[in-house]
Design a protein around this nucleic acid. Structure first.
Length: 152
DNA sequence: GCCAACGTTGGC
DNA sequence: GCCAACGTTGGC
């Protein structure tokens, strides 16, 4: 089983949104590197850290689990969606998504400032300046370091 | 609101 | 195929 981190802006979709919904598709990934990870590597049962970005309390907010492997993100064909991509061919969809389900909300968000200070996480793209990956792999050692540090 | 970093676009 | 310009991301 593999581990991942998904970024989201909690004003749009937060760990609370997922907790209330129970499960959800994860649409809107529009980056080829991220798309390839979704397509080639994400498997049923993989666990996902939900990370809140561009908000008051930036950091890791909880855990989700992948319940459906890669399939076409239909928002790319929805002309009214922010995620609409006129260049994507319906016969060969460019963008994919997975489904996830709620697993856990941490007692408190583990803030980015703490993550940055943890030597176990120094190789994570997340703590590097200018990182823009919205979906990234998490090593098992990084996963356990985070779960050891977080309030549950 | 600022700005650094990065990905994408398009002219050549 | 190069690379400058531009748009977006995302922390501060």
């Amino acid at each position: 089983m593999a581990y991942w981190l998904f970024k989201t802006e909690p004003d749009e979709f937060s760990i609370d949104t997922l907790r209330v919904k129970g499960s959800s598709c994860w649409e809107g990934v529009r980056n080829y590197q991220a798309r390839n990870m979704i397509r080639d590597q994400m498997k049923l049962g993989d666990l996902v850290l939900i990370y809140h970005s561009s908000c008051k309390t930036i950091g890791v907010a909880g855990i989700a689990r992948i319940t459906k492997e890669a399939y076409p993100d239909h928002f790319q064909f929805d002309i009214n969606s922010d995620y609409y991509d006129p260049k994507s061919d319906p016969d060969n969809p460019r963008w994919l998504m997975v489904d996830i389900e709620y697993v856990e909300k941490f007692k408190r968000v583990l803030p980015l400032s703490i993550l940055k200070g943890m030597p176990e996480l120094e190789n994570m793209p997340l703590v590097k300046r200018g990182n823009r990956l919205s979906v990234m792999p998490v090593a098992e050692s990084e996963w356990s370091a985070i779960l050891t540090r977080v309030a549950r």
